[in-house]
């Protein structure tokens, strides 16, 4: 158990380090997120829809697309120079590889979200007030489940034809539940409502995370069954 976690942390550390050294993907994902926010602002009728009304949807749709973009590269870097074989030959369990990739992706997505939120506040003239801790919690809960599934799917799509197209096709239906919950909760928080007023949505997010993180962890070894 401790071995698995240590190996997972080592793999996650490797991914995050190499990401920080190259920075290309991270910068690209953040710029991509900023661009979507800008597009959102112009793709509305300013006399009919206020920026504040659109903000929760803009935030979560932006994060969803940025996440898909980010996830498509996680196993691609391993495939490029046959690094995946080294990873598979390493004396660590398949679960550890999955958890490591999952944690690395989670950090990556968290960084993109951390960059998106201030941009949203800036572009949409939001006053976060006391909503910030709640939004951060919602972001964490919504991201865990999506990244869990996305990590599993990117391990598949990286090896199939048209993988870049397959990942969003497979992942977006799974994003619907966390996306709806996150947008609903964020809208309530921005309106100054207490977080626990929507406890049902929070429960949905937590259940989703537990179910899919467990299922993906169990399913991952089957994907690499050579």
């Amino acid at each position: 158990m401790t071995e698995t976690i240590a190996a997972a942390l080592a793999i996650a550390g490797k991914d995050i380090r190499s990401e920080f050294r190259r920075r290309t993907t991270l910068v690209a994902a953040i710029v991509f997120a900023a661009l979507i926010l800008v597009v959102f602002n112009f793709a509305r009728d300013p006399t009919a829809v206020t920026a504040a009304e659109l903000a929760p949807s803009a935030l979560w749709i932006t994060c969803a697309f940025a996440t898909v973009t980010a996830l498509s590269r996680t196993f691609a870097v391993e495939i490029d120079h046959g690094a995946i074989d080294g990873l598979l030959l390493a004396p660590v369990s398949r679960e550890a590889i999955y958890l490591g990739k999952f944690l690395g992706n989670l950090v990556f997505v968290a960084l993109v979200e951390a960059a998106t939120l201030p941009l949203l506040v800036l572009f949409f003239n939001l006053a976060l007030g006391g909503a910030l801790p709640g939004i951060l919690l919602v972001a964490a809960l919504a991201s865990i489940g999506v990244v869990a599934i996305g990590t599993l799917f990117s391990a598949m799509t990286v090896r199939v034809r048209f993988g870049e197209l397959m990942l969003p096709l497979l992942l977006l239906p799974f994003m619907m539940a966390p996306l709806a919950a996150a947008a609903k909760l964020t809208a309530a928080l921005l309106n100054g409502r207490p977080l626990l007023e929507n406890a049902a949505w929070l429960r949905l997010l937590v259940t989703y995370d537990i179910v899919f993180l467990t299922a993906c962890l169990l399913a991952f070894p089957f994907l690499l069954d050579e």
Partner: peptide, 15 residues
Amino acid sequence: VIGILGALLVPFIHL
């Protein structure tokens, strides 16, 4: 794997 995860997803969509 997609088939199994899809089956798990349905209750969440419904809810």
